[in-house]
């Protein structure tokens, strides 16, 4: 039973951390911008956490206008690793992330909106762009991924190398190896000697106890009748 609970907890942690990474890390979509617009967004308690805050330097109100970028994008398989020929529509929000979370330090939403507007293209004169974003689209909760940057490319067959994610996961591996080494060092040099010392104290204490008790029983023993020779 305990094994199953442990296994379940591990799966839960992997799903949560993986989901967080999938939400936070930058992804690149090959899209064609069709229009840009601004809607008023009234947040609810359950979709508020999927939005950033008001523009940097502005006051935070209960609802506000929000920039959207409407696109047609190439569908992909497996988190964008394999691009397909088919297309779908995708809507991105365009919000400042500010200073802390998620750590994109994005303050240029208005400029990005202008850049997106500058690459709007009709179907017969397609201008493909690589749109970097993080986040998820959820129609039931009205949640949009947040656009980080656009970059014009020659065509939809462009090759994208996710450098940041490569370095990020490399860093995660290095951090994991370091933490494991540090833990082993701590156990070998500090924890185990301390535990051994505690063990030694326990042994010595029990020896002492044995000594007191032993003397007592010996003393009792002196009352006993000596065996006759």
């Amino acid at each position: 039973m305990l094994h199953r609970i442990k296994f379940g907890l591990k799966v839960l942690i992997i799903v949560l951390v993986g989901g967080l990474a999938h939400y936070i890390l930058p992804q690149h979509d090959v899209v064609r911008v069709t229009s840009t617009e601004i809607i008023r967004q009234d947040f609810s308690w359950y979709n508020r956490m999927f939005y950033a805050q008001a523009d940097s330097g502005s006051v935070e109100a209960a609802n506000r206008d929000m920039r959207l970028i409407n696109t047609v994008r190439r569908k992909t398989w497996i988190w964008g690793f394999f691009r397909r020929e088919s297309e779908e529509v995708m809507v991105y929000r365009n919000e400042d992330t500010g200073w802390i979370w998620p750590p994109y330090f994005k303050f240029d939403s208005s400029n990005l909106q202008a850049e997106a507007a500058a690459v709007v293209s009709p179907r017969d004169d397609e201008q493909w762009v690589v749109l970097t974003h993080y986040g998820w689209r959820n129609k039931l909760m009205t949640v949009f991924p947040n656009a980080i940057g656009v970059r014009a490319v020659d065509g939809p067959g462009v090759r994208i190398i996710p450098w940041f994610n490569i370095f990020f996961f490399g860093f995660v591996i290095v951090a994991y190896v370091f933490l494991r080494a540090a833990w082993r060092q701590f156990r070998e040099r500090n924890l185990d000697p301390t535990l051994d010392a505690v063990d030694g104290h326990m042994d010595a204490a029990s020896d002492r106890a044995r000594g007191v008790w032993g003397r007592f029983t010996d003393w009792i023993g002196t009352w006993r009748e000596k065996p006759r020779r």
Binding site: P103, Y104, F105, K106, F107, D108, E115, G149
Partner: peptide, 12 residues
């Protein structure tokens, strides 16, 4: 890193 990210994100 933060400085680089700031400039990469906010310059075109």
């Amino acid at each position: 890193f933060v400085t680089t990210a700031f400039f990469v994100t906010n310059t075109n």
